[in-house]
């Protein structure tokens, strides 16, 4: 049975896959290009169609997830716009560096090794800090009830100590110099442009470890930025006619629900847990990317499928953990409320 020339079973598969990706995207503010583009490539779509449709899907999902985070008061527009300015400049400079490496014939090696190292490095750093004793981590103090009492990471404290006007007052009681925000945005954009990736996995940790905003605000603001980068990117690909709406429409129908659930979960799940899941996702992402790159170097196409299985397995594992964690927190809150009512 077909609908709009596409098998209903394929539409159902896309919607289910979209639900999974949307959940992770709404929760972390990253992961779309990790999952969708490799999956479409393995399914046999042309590279330009896979990349363009993946980007258009990320654009649509980021719109939905940003709106949901806005409803929860987790989008800082001042920070978002400043980040867009700095990131755009950084991407342009990063692209210059990439073109230079292409001229000297080192682009593939340097970019692939840097990508895996950065992905794995950030994953190890975040997981280690979140699983540590908690004293130096970014997780909330058990006794702290308001966000102003959060323990800031040392780098964020240092960055916030530079009082170079104009100062920006951000959500979560954070006051930071505009120049520091632009510097952080430029640095993340530089890496993003150099590696040729969306950069959510760099920007989200940068926002909470360097600028010092709470994790849910970092996710919401990162998604706000992706609305613009994803929109412009997919428009440029659509000029070449590469965006396939029979892929994007069913994916988006599933991810719209997943993104709402993922965004809502950020206000329920503990920040420490969010960081652990984010770190595990990055580590397994690094493994998958490394397998794919090795497959390309030694010319073994089946490793592309192995990489996809690793990343989809990781996505299933992490999204399952998010759902279980959310239900556990909701039940714990309910028990606390019931206990207070009994007192």
């Amino acid at each position: 049975m077909e609908l709009f020339g596409v098998a209903v079973s394929l539409l159902g598969t896309f919607a289910g896959f979209g639900l999974l990706v949307g959940l992770l995207f709404g929760f972390f503010g990253m992961g779309g290009s990790f999952l969708v583009t490799p999956a479409l490539l393995v399914m046999g779509y042309e590279t330009d169609v896979a990349v363009a449709s993946g980007l258009a899907f990320v654009f649509g999902t980021s719109v939905i997830a940003t709106l949901k985070h806005r409803d929860l008061g987790q989008v800082d527009y001042k920070l978002g716009v400043s980040m867009i300015v700095g990131t755009t400049a950084g991407i342009e400079v990063g692209k210059i560096g990439l073109h230079w490496l292409q001229r000297v014939g080192l682009a593939n090696v340097v970019v692939n090794v840097s990508y895996v190292a950065l992905l794995g490095g950030i994953g190890v750093f975040i997981t280690h800090r979140a699983l540590g004793d908690g004293s130096g981590g970014f997780g909330p103090d058990e006794d702290a009830e308001v966000s102003d009492d959060r323990e800031l990471p040392p780098i964020a404290q240092k960055i916030q100590s530079y009082r170079i006007p104009p100062m920006l007052e951000l959500r979560g009681g954070v006051v930071v110099s505009l120049w520091m925000v632009l510097f952080v945005a430029f640095a993340t954009g530089l890496l993003s442009g150099f590696l040729g990736v969306g950069g959510g996995f760099i920007r989200m940790p940068a926002l909470f470890y360097l600028v010092g905003v709470p994790v849910p605000v970092a996710v919401g603001t990162d998604l706000f930025e992706i609305v613009f980068s994803g929109g412009i990117g997919s428009f440029l690909y659509a000029l070449d006619g590469a965006v396939d709406l029979t892929i994007v429409v069913p994916l988006l129908s599933g991810s719209a629900l997943g993104a709402r659930l993922g965004a809502a979960a950020t206000s329920v799940v503990e920040e420490d847990d969010i960081q652990v899941y984010f770190g595990v996702m990055l580590l397994l992402g690094a493994v998958a990317v490394a397998i794919r790159q090795i497959g390309g170097v030694i010319d073994v196409p089946v490793l592309d499928t192995v990489a996809l299985v690793v990343i989809v397995g990781a996505a299933l594992l992490v999204s399952g953990a998010i759902v279980v964690s959310s239900v556990r927190e909701l039940r714990a809150d309910e028990r606390t409320d019931a206990g207070r009512a009994a007192d």
């Binding site: 258009a56 899907f57 654009f59 649509g60 999902t61 719109v63 939905i64 709106l67 949901k68 929109g231 997919s234 428009f235 659509a238 000029l239 006619g241 965006v243 709406l245 994007v248 429409v249 988006l252 129908s253 719209a256 629900l257 709402r260």
Partner: peptide, 25 residues
């Protein structure tokens, strides 16, 4: 014409996203 067609495609994605946001809301 190419730019218009691209705009329509991205516009369709945006309209679907907003409709789904409202519908699921």
């Amino acid at each position: 014409a190419v730019a218009t067609r691209a705009g329509v495609v991205i516009g369709a994605v945006l309209v679907e996203a907003l409709s789904l946001y409202v519908g699921y809301g």
